[in-house]
Simulated scan of single mutants.
Amino acid sequence: MGKIKLKNIRIHSNHGCLKEEMLIGSDYRVDLEIAANLERPALSDKLHETVDYVHLNNIVKEEMMVRSNLLEHVAKRICDRVLEELNEVSEVEVEVAKINPPIGGDVESVSVKLRFTR
């Protein structure tokens, strides 16, 4: 068993319940971690035997471009696609953070973290 992590994927998108968020958008950070059996690709050195992190990054980018009111909804869609498209993945965890959220205070970010297993 092993893990692949994509850390600090930075994306600008239009999630949120406020009208300004829908129009102007905000900056987001996404961290994605998957668990899979990596023994075979560790020995073979063949891309087709592992979980391609380019594919993982594309899932994150595509789902972040689909507008949602809640970070929870975006995070769930990312997890669902990873498990749906990559049979080798046994567990997925994603954290979606909104940078400088408009919540009336000096807050660096707010985030939602979800984890699902097969």
Rank of each mutant, 00 (worst) to 15 (best):
M1C: 01
G2F: 09
G2L: 09
I4P: 01
I4G: 05
I4M: 04
I4K: 04
K5W: 01
K5R: 11
K5C: 08
L6Y: 01
K7V: 01
K7W: 00
N8F: 03
I11Q: 00
I11S: 03
H12A: 03
H12W: 04
H12N: 00
S13W: 03
C17V: 15
C17E: 08
E21K: 14
E21L: 10
M22Y: 11
M22E: 14
L23T: 12
L23C: 04
L23P: 00
S26T: 02
S26Y: 04
Y28M: 10
V30I: 14
V30Y: 00
L32H: 03
E33A: 03
E33N: 01
E33Y: 01
I34G: 02
I34K: 01
A35N: 04
A36S: 14
A36M: 09
N37G: 05
L38K: 00
R40I: 12
P41V: 07
P41N: 08
P41L: 06
A42E: 08
A42K: 10
A42I: 07
D45T: 08
K46I: 09
K46M: 13
H48L: 06
H48N: 11
T50N: 09
T50S: 15
V51G: 05
V51K: 06
V54N: 09
V54R: 13
V54L: 12
H55L: 06
H55A: 13
L56M: 08
N58I: 07
N58Q: 12
N58H: 12
I59Q: 02
V60H: 05
K61Q: 13
K61Y: 10
V66A: 12
V66I: 15
R67P: 06
R67A: 13
R67Y: 03
S68D: 13
N69I: 11
N69Y: 15
L70P: 01
L70R: 08
L70G: 05
E72S: 13
H73K: 12
A75D: 02
A75I: 00
A75Q: 04
K76Y: 09
R77V: 08
D80C: 03
R81Q: 02
R81V: 05
V82R: 00
V82N: 01
V82L: 02
L83Y: 02
E85K: 15
L86H: 08
N87V: 11
N87L: 15
N87Y: 10
N87R: 13
E88T: 08
V89D: 06
S90G: 15
E91M: 15
V92S: 11
V92C: 07
V92T: 08
V92L: 05
E93N: 08
E93T: 14
E93W: 03
V94I: 13
E95Y: 07
E95W: 02
E95Q: 12
V96G: 00
V96Y: 01
K98C: 10
I99K: 11
I99A: 10
N100V: 13
N100F: 15
P102M: 13
P102G: 12
I103N: 12
I103S: 11
G104C: 14
G104P: 04
G104R: 11
D106C: 12
V107M: 12
V107G: 14
V107D: 09
E108D: 15
V110M: 03
S111Q: 05
S111F: 07
V112T: 04
V112C: 02
K113V: 10
L114S: 07
R115Q: 02
R115H: 03
F116H: 03
T117M: 06
T117D: 07
R118A: 10
R118I: 07
R118G: 05
